[in-house]
């Protein structure tokens, strides 16, 4: 009985409108209150659930909300609320499927960069609460281990990292909203090239960095957990002589460009360590 009652009440929360059959069905279970009839009672809860979703999504996706405007964002949030059931008790996870949902809405196709903007904002949101990186190895230990066995080690991106390759300049767009250039008449140049972005947290600071095209495949390879040797190959500097064993070590002098590339990844905070596979 309780299960059925809660099921009916739940369906009424997501009904298209107050005249919906599910609202009428849930109202059947309710008594009149002194100054509220059953549909009015349900309307309070329907409104509360909708407001909670709109506010929560608005906190995670503030630039998306600005791009579409308050009324449209509320409409999108209500469609999301009805279309994508929340499966987590944790309200911080409520936006997990929002970028893909935005991408699926035909009426938002006039803003082709919106879904990637949402992906960027979700990355920033998740970076806030992501775990801390593992403690660093002692100086030299990681480098030596990797040099000795590049097939058996992999680099680690920060646990807070999100990689985003967009066909649109969404980081530029996002930054224009942060420093309020949009209020001075700034508009997005839709012909501008797309951007490759790494979102990550370094200490208490959350960063969204543009990634050079040459480094992007290396970061993707690291994010997929591939061994260091793969990234060395991608760096174009693993110059093994023909017939040399793959198990041979790296000669630091021969591979200076590789090591420089790897150092850059560490210095920027993009790579935070390594681990044996």
């Amino acid at each position: 009985m309780l299960r059925e009652l809660q099921q009916a009440f739940s369906e009424a929360l997501y009904a298209e409108g107050p005249e919906s059959p599910s609202v009428a069905a849930a109202a059947e279970n309710l008594d009149l209150m002194p100054r509220l009839d059953a549909p009015a009672s349900l309307a309070i809860y329907r409104s509360a659930v909708g407001n909670c979703m709109t506010e929560s999504l608005g906190e995670i996706f503030p630039v998306c909300a600005e791009l579409v405007g308050e009324d449209c964002f509320r409409t999108v949030a209500n469609l999301y609320l009805r279309g994508i059931p929340s499966r987590h008790a944790d309200l911080a996870r409520v936006g997990d499927a929002f970028p893909e949902f935005v991408a699926s809405l035909d009426f938002l196709s006039r803003l082709p960069y919106l879904a990637d903007t949402a992906r960027l904002e979700l990355g920033l949101h998740n970076a806030y609460s992501a775990s801390w990186p593992p403690p660093p190895h002692a100086p030299g230990v990681l480098g030596q281990a990797i040099a000795d066995e590049p097939e058996r080690w992999r680099f680690l991106l920060s646990p807070s990292a999100t990689l985003l390759a967009s066909a649109h300049p969404v980081l530029t767009l996002w930054e224009a909203h942060q420093d309020r250039r949009i209020e001075g008449g700034w508009t997005l140049d839709r012909r501008a090239p797309g951007e490759r972005i790494l979102v990550f947290r370094q200490g208490a600071e959350i960063h969204a960095d543009l990634v050079e095209p040459s480094l992007w495949p290396i970061l993707l390879s690291i994010s997929e957990g591939e061994p260091v040797v793969k990234q060395l190959e991608l760096a174009g500097a693993l110059r093994r002589s023909e017939g040399q064993s793959r198990d041979s070590g790296i000669n630091p002098e021969e591979n200076l460009p590789i090591l420089t590339t790897i150092e850059v990844l560490f210095e920027r905070g993009w790579v935070v360590g390594g681990e044996p596979i």
Binding site: L2, R3, L5, Q6, Q7, F9, S10, L13, Y45, A48, V49, C52, M53, S56, P85, S86, R87, H88, A89, L91, V94
Partner: peptide, 17 residues
């Protein structure tokens, strides 16, 4: 109160009989 049913989370405190 309850905040979920049928595996769906409503993120709102809902009333009980």
């Amino acid at each position: 109160a309850w905040t979920s049913s049928g595996g769906r989370h409503h993120h709102e405190l809902l009333p009980l009989p």
